[in-house]
């Protein structure tokens, strides 16, 4: 345990601090999600009332596309000076690297969502929910993003072994995250648009929670096999 949490925290803090200094990843992710929103406005006429039904899907398209950018960076930046070797020769559990990276990536994506989702609501003139619905919404976003990051971090580490990891990662990742995408979009739609079948939203959230737990544990256990040189 001693070689798990403390190094994981150190790695996560290192990533966040490096990001604070360069601001490269977050900026890119934000600009990219802004561009996706603009593209949506061309694809679906924002003045049309029916378009509000598409907003839940848009939230997750933004999350996944900008998330992929962050995930790609997460491990390719560690390859520049063989940083991963530096982490591996240290007395650090390989799973600590997974844990730390997951945490950092999760924070990046959540930060992007905090800015881009309200922007989406604003630009598409979406009726903002309040009260209990908002709490549900936040929980759904968190659960969905966590599942996406748990799988994404493992696969990003896997893909970095390839010379063209940026191309490989989406192909590996998208089929695997389908359950969480379906569940997240459905639950978000129920909470934001229908506002009636809260129980259905709850069962979707249970599905996401189960997915999160399974893939977090699997990633935690398998990470050392992905890491070795």
């Amino acid at each position: 345990m001693k070689h798990l949490f403390a190094p994981a925290m150190a790695i996560a803090r290192k990533d966040l601090y490096a990001e604070w200094k360069t601001k490269q990843t977050i900026t890119t992710m934000l600009i990219f999600s802004g561009l996706v929103i603009v593209t949506f406005s061309f694809a679906f006429d924002p003045s049309n009332q029916a378009v509000s039904a598409l907003v839940p899907g848009m939230i997750w398209v933004i999350t996944i596309f900008s998330g992929i950018l962050g995930l790609n960076r997460s491990f390719t930046q560690e390859k520049q000076n063989d940083h991963l070797h530096g982490l591996m020769v240290a007395p650090v559990d390989p799973s600590a690297i997974y844990l730390g990276k997951c945490l950092a990536n999760l924070i990046f994506v959540l930060l992007v969502q905090i800015i881009s989702v309200p922007l989406l609501f604003l630009l598409f003139d979406f009726q903002v929910i309040s009260g209990v619905g908002l709490i549900y919404f936040v929980m759904i976003v968190f659960l969905g993003t966590f599942g996406f990051i748990a799988v994404g971090t493992l696969l990003a580490a896997l893909a970095t072994h390839s010379k063209s990891s940026e191309m490989l990662l989406p192909i590996l990742l998208f089929p695997l995250v389908t359950p969480v995408v379906i569940a997240a979009v459905q639950a978000t739609r129920i909470v934001l648009v229908d506002q009636e079948g809260v129980s259905a939203a709850l069962s979707w959230m249970q599905l996401m929670a189960a997915y999160d737990v399974i893939f977090f544990v699997v990633g935690f256990l398998l990470f050392e096999h992905v890491l070795e040189v």
């Binding site: 896997l158 695997l176 599905l207 997915y211 699997v218």
Partner: peptide, 28 residues
């Protein structure tokens, strides 16, 4: 050796994903 290791990891998580995919799609 490395390729086999990476493929094995993907083979495992891929298969673990199948029932969840099926369930979520069915539900949807």
């Amino acid at each position: 050796q490395k390729r086999a290791r990476l493929a094995a990891v993907f083979g495992i998580i891929g298969f673990a994903n199948v029932p969840i995919v099926y369930m979520s799609i069915r539900w949807w």
